[in-house]
Amino acid sequence: MKIAKILAAAAAGAALLAPVLCALPAQATTAQGVPVKEVPAPHDGGTFSRDIAGGGTTTVSAAPFAAQVSFDAAGTNVQCTGSLIAASWVITAKHCNSTSLRSVRLGTSYLGAGGAVRKVAGRYPAPAGDVLLLKLATPYYGSYVGLSGSFPATGTTARVYGWGYQSKGSGAMSYYLKAADVSVVWQGVDNYGGPSVRTRSESGHTLDGDSGGPLVVNGKLAGVLSTSDILPAPNPSSYTGYYNDHASVVRNLAWITSVSGVRGS
């Protein structure tokens, strides 16, 4: 559910070619056979986002800060995921930014149903990096996720959350909140050239349906999902060994604090 770009590497996955706005190929790889990444394009109005293939269903009690970012006032046209970081602030990915982005649904495990809907009063894209802050028109006094004040070490275990596709190309988002385990690999680059936390998928892989979704390390928000490797077709039964880039929270923390007043710890 998005407009996709393809980034292909010219040498060892490093030198980027010009992106193409088109349907993603079934098995896009570099010359060395490494899957290239899905990079959702910044745009105004289309449908896009990211999700978890594999992993497992969970409830909002496991991630009470998880937010559904919707492109309508009713909170039913969900296209991205976010995280509640304060009563009036949700963080998501900048490539989700659009004049059609109208509301956020909070406090529910179910896609487009239950919980509470808050209209978005303002959208604040980061000057660098794939980060977007949403100011809610009415505060939501739920559970917030703290912002990580340090970059996670290589090998650290982490967890991602989101709603969406069960497999690449399935065309329908998951009705239930899903979660998957990942591990931190190193610092990478997000969709806007900003610093990212690069992770390796362990029990599930992010796909269409969860852009801007939380990367949680030791109970703190360390990143928001920006790009993911494209899965080969047919999708593998094991979702390990694929990589994701999450826009780094700590590398954008000074700006986040200046806009929202929320500090890291």
Rank of each mutant, 00 (worst) to 15 (best):
L16V: 13
L17E: 13
T47S: 15
A28M: 07
K94W: 08
P25D: 05
Q32M: 11
V34S: 11
V34I: 13
V120W: 00
T59V: 13
A121K: 12
G82V: 04
V69E: 01
V90A: 05
A67N: 02
T59H: 04
T76S: 11
F71Y: 15
A113I: 09
S88C: 01
G55Y: 00
V39S: 13
T99M: 07
R118V: 05
G115T: 02
A87L: 06
F48Y: 12
F65S: 14
T30F: 02
S100T: 12
F71W: 12
A23G: 10
F65T: 09
C22P: 00
A113E: 09
A53C: 12
Q32T: 12
Y110F: 14
T59P: 04
P35Y: 09
V34M: 10
A31R: 09
A31T: 08
A18M: 10
V36P: 00
V20Q: 13
D51L: 10
T99I: 08
S98C: 06
F48I: 08
L111R: 14
A23L: 10
V60Y: 11
T108Q: 05
L21N: 12
S70F: 00
E38W: 13
V39F: 07
V120H: 01
A116R: 10
V36F: 13
A116V: 15
G56D: 11
V20H: 08
S88R: 14
L24E: 10
S83G: 08
A26Q: 12
T81W: 04
T30R: 04
D72E: 08
A15I: 15
I85F: 00
G56S: 15
T58V: 12
T58S: 07
G56Q: 13
Y110A: 14
S83Q: 06
P40C: 06
G54F: 00
